[in-house]
Design a protein around this nucleic acid. Sequence first.
DNA 1: AAGTGCTGCAACCGCCGATAA
DNA 2: CTTATCGGCGGTTGCAGCACT
Length: 290
Amino acid sequence: MGRSPCCSSDDANLKKGPWTPEEDEKLLDYINTHGHGNWKTLPKHAGLNRCGKSCRLRWANYLRPDIKRGRFSEEEERLIVNLHSTLGNKWSKIATYLPGRTDNEIKNFWNTHIRKKLLNMGLEPNTHKPRTDLNHLLNLTQLICAAQLGSLMNPWESSALKVQADAAQLLQNLIQTLNTNQLSTITAGLINGTSSLYADEPAPVPQKFHSMSGDFLISELVSESPETATTSMNQMGDDKTNTNHYYSTMSPADTSMFQAWEKLMGDETDSSFWKDILDLTSSPSSPIQR
DNA sequence: AAGTGCTGCAACCGCCGATAA
DNA sequence: CTTATCGGCGGTTGCAGCACT
């Protein structure tokens, strides 16, 4: 069975592509006086040579009077990220929480802005968790090589470079460790605020996670409503106690590595260093990538 | 000034669920 | 119960405008 495409008949004669102001006016006039009613028959009645679906989309995404135009505010952006972390790519659902914004607009905004932002922060946009794909880290290897080579060729500049190379090396070791099963579970707990190792304990949510770009708040929402989502975001705070709690489950070697990492993250100067690394590794024009 | 690449956004395509016949 | 139709949704594409070389 299945269904035929909505505009299969007379397809060749139906207009496609961008709408003209005249078409917009016809559609607006018709809907304002008659309401949209049946979208399938609307174009005929409105004197439009378009398929009903095209008319519906034009109305919903552009002509509707309650549409808010212009840039997304920071508040809206934050809300979208939060809602996406719980709802996934349910753009129409997300749109119901942003009055005046269409699902299409939000989807576009996500794909063109937020997605890139999260990637640059070292986060997987679909899961909102740190990226574990090693492709991303290949650049780090290159960075380490470059830094080490630099120190060979330019010994008098070597100390700063060495610090950077050491930091990058540490990060790589850390990620490598994270790829082992046990630690993945632990860090998943650190990040999510839920750990299968401590399933019987109340999950400390949401947590603060120190990402590669410095301190970044990941709100893994447990709540269903966006109202609570926003509130929990605002209520987020540092949670060292829980971090120490997780340390207690690691081997001494892993613990010292994590502590070294934390020290690195706690250092004001180092956070700019990580930003530089991220810029280097993510920028398409990066000399490292050439 | 011309060519090229990138970005953002409007619109299209194809699938799915609900529902009417 | 089966089939056809519609509205809605998410993914993808195409193009205009802009930035850069």
